[in-house]
Design a protein around this nucleic acid. Structure first.
Ligand SMILES: Nc1nc2c(ncn2[C@H]2C[C@H](O)[C@@H](COP(=O)(O)OP(=O)(O)OP(=O)(O)O)O2)c(=O)[nH]1
Ligand SMILES: [Mg+2]
Ligand SMILES: [Mg+2]
Ligand SMILES: [Zn+2]
Length: 1237
DNA sequence: CAGTTTGTCCCGAAGTC
DNA sequence: ATCACGACTTCGGGACAAACTG
């Protein structure tokens, strides 16, 4: 080790450098001193400490490191030595000096370190150095705000890079334009972050201490399998994965931590107690633990339970892949192989990554729905994804369509080599689902041939064409012909095919071996490579139990005979083919799959960018329409508040490509209104004033204000002193200009909730259509964009908790296996998430811009592959392609239907109902307005049947909070939606006096506004709001920033708990609708009840309900007594009955269903009371009801026999009996009185 | 006429806003 | 009786009855 610094040029290191490197170093030679060399023997690492008297580019230092490392490890001696370079500036270099001499270099280094600063800190940026203070002059407030965020990074950069304690200051240089610069900076940053993420996935891995003792002492003994525990035991040692955890507060104040442990042979519940106030151990799902303790019979759970005495973490004991050169799996199924694959692609790719496999293929049966998750996992774990599919090939050469549809299909592996291949694959998926679907999505050979470019074909498994031919002992020429169709031939472990011994297709183990040998020899003969594949259906051997349970659930008799279709390591796989020549085996297992993997390019299933549709002139139309409406309501010139809001919004909407979406939404609303169906407002789009002015929402997001509706006057006045949360809560006022009563409006909602600050969110536009009109709205959208440019988003239904639970229970009980709750839960969670069927999104339409091709984003299919459906959906679900395409959400909703019916019945215009009506407001806290008592109707508020305000939970909230204004109702609406928003969160804060109803979090906008107020950077505040509203909680850096700005702990805590939260705009829209319906409930009770029962009461049971209020009360009690055992239907019926009781209390009569007068499905208001429809009788469906009405209209009904005979079988015996029971057929003869004489 | 297919009604489950 | 998000759509499957098929 040298003590005095020497010039690098004088050291042996320099001599060792290749000439190209030393040449590039030459410029710096006089500035680099080698201080000392530190050697870390145990890491085989040399650290060169350099002292620099001028900044040296990172690139140069990197070059130096690399070439020295290469040199030291060259030749046959691979020493494994690593080199690290640490630099500091020589002590006589001051900040001033450095900046004077090397400003350009410094700026360049800054750009490398913090790319987003490029925009503001270029070489010409003004700066000033005084001692260790460096002041930058940036162009704008925004720039400064942004730069300040990077201050810490910059200071630490000066420290690390130059060893200087620089203090950085920012000042505004008064001149430049700002907005756009800001925008670019963020993009730059984004790009950089993405780059880093994509480059170094392994750096994100979690650091967790292994073998740490969590409790008691270190455990020395060997763990026993959990399956061996059958009884109470004094002491056992076990090891496994934590599969569930729960912390409960006991009455005594002690805390109970219970968790489940599984080693996949069995599972066991564990219990640990902690004293009051002590922090329980932190144990998470997925942790691996070794536990020593006693097994006791727990009387509370009535199960054997492990009481840990000692506990430690252990490293996960998954088997390694130690091979030097590793295999690549080319045939793998995930949970997206319908009811067949049981492991997630994430876990598969994770394993491949842990094993050091460079690539892994995804080949689900007939579908590619695992691609999005695969792409994400590939990025995360640094494994190349080979996008593929196991298709169903059918021979169509020389067959007619009928034969084609019946012929058997063969499995075939199709891998996409590049983007051409991927697109072809998507086309094949589409065609096989849309045109050739018969039980399975089938691919005719001619179609495959036509799309073969960019695809690699493998011969698949025993259900592949090649193996079938061999099994059928077809002649050699034929077999050769078949084999030559493929790019590679597959052989699989014998275990995959052993089931054929049982079913008699193959007579001996030897024959199985011979088949694989046959394929190897074919390969040699034809020069087509052989690849050994697992046909993976589950990750680990033990995971086959999940597949067994699923197959048993589907009714397969042979469910228990699972082939070992697990993911094998290289050595495991080589062992499977030990009977082959060593060289052949190695080639098949390792060399060929690697070679194939190398042919495949790194691709993505779809682009990452956002693509918006374009329509000529859309932006101008939106702008004009908005301004016209604005002038109409607020006069010209516009009040400053309106003008400013519109400027900001229009720039953002048009700049971010949302003009077209606005235009379409506007047209849809307009068309629906013209067709007589009003449209309900919904979603975050109500935060946009442009949306208000274009008719997309009726929510007005401006601050509370008055405006004069007199077109000659148009006076307006904004009230920003905070006395009212909503315009409608303002006191009435007369226009000071013209004396008319002023209109009150404005709900004070920030636009950014919709689009963010810099378009950093891709929202949708949501509209509530009447259920009857929804399909027409969809059709109209297709008309506007063209059928080939809009598609219904598809959904993927999986086995979820309940179904899995049923399957597991059945499985275990049928086989009389003893099990405990923990093991049951573990098996259930292993079975969930497996695809079961596909469906259609409730209202999502994805828009493909004209200049794009849908196959750049997704294949297409029909919901549930129902060939008779005329709906086309995306093959990927909305979530996985969100952010790339614009989406319209045309949802069905009952509010518009209800309001329309109420308007029809009363002849009124619901929009004219005053939202400051005090009587209506009182309904939300008392029953007085209904003229009934709380006892009579069993509710202290009058909101039974008012949408989103009628449930027990919300009524309780209303009772507790007694809302006294419209804006108060809006807050209640926000607080009453989402888990852990009110109970266990806001409610506690109010009760214990920490906060009051005005500053708790009631809707997502609250969060953003408050955080900005507290001094957080606005875009960070926005991000926090988005994270909280989705129930994702806060990140560490969020909490840090919040604490820094003195956001109180209770607020942070509250954010962490929220699992979902409305935008204010949505709450306003829904309260508006609820308020109107409440008004009708008070003023037009018959119309209200008729509407409620027609629109929202599927379970209306006329037979029960017509028998009087007493029977109804009894029925309510009966259902209540069922408690948790009440079904969804029971609960629905209960609400209906409660409303019926209320109706009876208000002295409104209900008639019996009447064969001659009752409508098929609608309740009618008649002078003698409400008349229920035919379909309100349980057992009389809509079809039967409709055909009864039709019979009635086409000539008289002469007899009971007549009804059945003339109904085309639509009216069954059961229906007739139901009608008879209810007395509808009284006086009607059984048979036609037709005399034969 | 027996066996199979088709149509209705209902219900639970899942997904989504 | 506890606690408690509300509302809406679609799909599969069971029960049953009627219509069709050979
Ligand atoms: N009660 C309740 N309503 C929901 C839930 N999810 C969505 N909604 C309602 C409120 C939303 O504003 C509205 C539209 O949903 P979206 O998914 O389009 O979200 P939103 O418009 O709020 O935000 P966006 O800007 O589209 O990301 O539907 C939920 O989990 N519970
Ligand atoms: Mg939305
Ligand atoms: Mg939506
Ligand atoms: Zn006026």
């Amino acid at each position: 080790m040298s003590t005095a610094a020497v010039k690098l040029v004088a050291t042996p290191f320099y001599q060792e450098l290749p000439s190209d490197v030393s040449m590039r170093l030459d410029t710096f030679l006089n500035y680099i001193l080698l201080e000392r060399v530190e050697i870390v023997p145990e890491q085989r690492k040399w650290i060169l400490h350099l002292s620099l008297s001028c900044p040296v580019q990172e690139e140069i230092l990197g070059l130096l490191t690399e070439s020295l490392k290469k040199r030291l490890n060259s030749g046959n001696e691979n020493n494994g030595i690593t080199i690290e370079i640490k630099t500091k500036m020589s002590p006589d270099v001051t900040l001033e000096l450095l900046c004077q001499e090397h400003w350009l270099q410094i700026i360049q280094d800054i750009h490398e370190k913090v790319p987003s600063l490029k925009v503001w800190l270029n070489a010409s940026v003004k700066y000033e150095v005084v001692k260790n203070r460096l002041t930058f002059f940036v162009p704008s407030m925004m720039a400064m705000e942004y730069c300040q965020l990077k201050q810490d990074s910059l200071e630490s950069f000066f420290r690390q890079k130059y060893g200087l304690e620089a203090r950085i200051f920012w000042e505004i240089e008064e001149t430049a334009a700002e907005e756009e610069i800001y925008f670019d900076a963020e993009k730059e940053e984004q790009k950089y972050v993405e780059e880093i993420l994509s480059k170094k996935p392994e750096e994100k891995k979690e650091k967790k201490e292994q073998n740490a003792v969590l409790l008691g002492r270190e455990i020395k003994g060997t763990p026993a399998p959990l399956a061996d525990i059958h009884d109470e035991e004094k002491q056992v040692i076990v090891e496994g994965e934590v599969c569930e955890t729960e912390i409960r507060l006991l009455k005594s104040g002690r805390q109970l931590l219970s968790f489940g442990l599984t080693d996949k042979t069995n599972s066991i519940g564990c219990k640990l107690f902690f004293d009051e106030g002590k922090k329980p151990l932190e144990i998470n799902k997925g942790d691996w633990l070794r536990v020593k303790g006693s097994v006791q019979f727990d009387r509370y759970t009535t199960e054997l339970t492990l009481m840990p005495r000692d506990m430690m973490t252990v490293s996960k004991t998954s088997k390694p892949d130690l091979a030097e050169e590793k295999r690549v799996e080319l045939h793998l199924h995930t949970k997206h192989s319908e009811m067949d694959g049981v492991s997630s692609i994430q876990n598969m790719v994770k394993r491949a990554g842990e094993w050091g496999h460079t690539a892994i293929a995804v080949t689900d049966h007939g579908v590619v729905q695992a691609f999005p998750d695969a792409a994400e996992a590939g990025k995360k774990y640094g494994v190349k994804i080979i996008y593929g599919m196991e298709g169903y090939l059918v021979e169509d050469a020389g067959t007619n369509p009928v034969e084609l549809s019946r012929s058997r299909s063969f499995h075939i592996i199709i891998l996409a080599k590049d983007y051409t291949g991927l697109k072809n694959l998507y086309k094949l998926v589409t065609a096989s689902h849309m045109e050739y679907f018969y039980r399975r999505p089938r691919i005719p050979r001619s179609l495959l041939d036509a799309h073969r470019e960019g695809l690699i074909l493998g011969s698949a498994c025993e259900s592949g064409e090649l193996m079938r031919a061999i099994l059928q002992k077809k002649d050699a020429a034929e077999i050769k012909k078949i084999a030559s169709y493929y790019d590679y031939l597959e052989i699989q472990p014998l275990g995959n095919n052993r089931f054929m011994l049982k079913n008699g297709e193959v007579s001996s183990e030897q024959e199985l071996i011979d088949m694989n040998r046959h394929i190897v020899s074919l390969s040699k003969e034809l020069g087509i490579p052989v690849a050994a594949t697992c046909d993976v259906h589950f990750l680990d051997k033990e995971d086959e139990v999940y597949r067994r349970i699923l197959m048993a659930g589907k009714g397969f008799a042979d469910a228990d005979e699972q082939a070992p279709l697990y993911f094998r390591s290289t050595d495991e796989m080589l062992k499977e083919f030990a009977y082959l020549d060593e060289e052949d085996a190695y080639r098949a297992v390792v060399a060929t799959p690697r070679m194939i993997a190398e042919q495949v390019a790194e691709i993505k299933p779809f682009p990452d960018d956002f693509f918006e549709p374009k329509i000529e002139g859309a932006a101008d139309k939106i702008r004009d329409m908005t301004m016209t409406r604005a002038y109409e309501l607020y006069g010209n010139p516009l009040p400053e508040m309106v003008q400013k809001t519109l400027n900001k919004e229009l720039d953002s909407i048009i700049g971010n490509g949302f003009a077209v979406l606005y235009l379409i939404a506007h047209l849809l609303v307009k068309r629906s209104n013209e067709d007589g169906y009003l449209v309900g407002s919904r979603g975050s789009v109500g935060s946009s004033l442009v949306a208000t002015f274009t008719g997309i929402t009726e929510v007005n997001p401006l601050p509370p204000h008055y405006r004069c509706a007199n077109p000659e006057c148009l006076y307006s006045e904004f009230v920003t002193d905070g006395i009212a949360g909503a315009g409608v809560d303002l006191p009435d006022k007369i226009c000071p200009q013209c004396g008319r009563e002023l209109v009150k409006d404005g709900h004070d909602i920030p636009f950014e909730t919709f689009l963010g600050f810099k378009g950093d969110k891709v929202p949708d536009i949501d509209l509530n259509f009447s259920g009857e009109y929804q399909p027409r709205a969809m059709k109209y959208t297709e008309e506007i964009f063209g059928k080939e440019n809009v598609f219904r988003a598809g959904t993927i239904s999986t086995i979820a908790e309940k179904t899995a639970y049923g399957f597991v229970k059945n499985y275990l009980e049928e086989r009389k296996v003893k099990y405990n709750q923990t093991e049951l839960n573990r098996l259930v969670s292993g079975c969930t998430g497996v695809k079961r069927t596909t469906g259609q999104h409730p209202g999502g339409l994805m828009v493909i811009p004209k200049e794009c091709d849908v196959f750049d984003f997704t294949p297409l299919q029909r919901p549930a592959n129902d060939t008779s459906s005329d709906i086309i959906t995306t093959h990927f679900d909305y979530h996985s392609i969100s952010g790339r395409l614009t989406k319209l959400d045309l949802l069905g909703h009952d509010d518009p239907t209800s309001i329309k019916m109420l308007e029809d019945l009363t002849g009124l215009d619901a929009k004219k109902i005053r939202l400051d009506d005090t009587q209506t407001l009182s309904l939300f806290s008392s029953t007085d307005a209904l003229d009934v008592t709380a006892e009579e109707i069993g509710s202290t508020t009058g909101t039974l049947g008012i949408p989103e305000f009628g449930t027990k939970f919300v009524r309780q909230m209303l009772e507790d909070t007694k809302p006294s204004s419209f804006s108060h109702l809006v807050r209640i609406s926000g607080l009453s939606h989402g888990t852990n928003v009110w109970v266990g969160n806001a409610q506690d804060l109010v009760l214990n006096g920490t906060a009051d109803i005005s500053n708790i979090i009631a809707c997502r906008d609250d969060i953003m506004i408050y955080l900005i107020q507290m001094g957080l950077n606005s875009s960070h505040a926005f991000k926090i709001m988005e994270s909280v509203r989705k129930g994702k909680g806060l990140k560490d850096e969020d909490i840090e920033a919040m604490k820094k700005q003195n956001v109180p702990d209770w607020y942070i805590d509250s954010c962490q708990k929220i699992s979902y939260m409305f935008p204010k705009a949505h709450a306003v829209a829904y309260v508006t609708m609820a308020f109107r319906i409440a008004w009708f409930k008070i003023n037009y009770p018959e119309a209200f009840y008729a509407t409620f029962f027609t629109v929202r009461a599927d379970e209306f049971d006329a037979e029960l309900i017509c028998s009087g209020v007493k029977k109804c009360r009894e029925a309510i009690k009966e259902i209540a007594a069922k408690g948790n055992n009440a079904t969804a239907k029971d609960k629905n019926l209960q609400t209906i009955l409660e409303i019926v009781v209320e109706m009876y209390c208000r002295k409104i009569k209900l008639r019996k269903v009447n064969l001659w007068e009752s409508d098929a499905v609608r309740f009618q208001v008649t002078p003698d009371g409400l008349l229920p429809p035919l379909s309100s009788l349980q057992g009389v469906g809509e079809t039967a009801a409709a055909s009864l009405v039709k019979l009635r209209e086409h000539g008289t009904i002469k007899s009971v026999e007549d009804i059945q005979a003339r109904s085309n079988g639509k009216i069954s015996k059961t229906v007739i009996e139901t009608l008879q029971q209810h007395g509808c057929l009284e006086g009607l003869p059984d048979k036609n009185q037709l005399s034969l004489f």
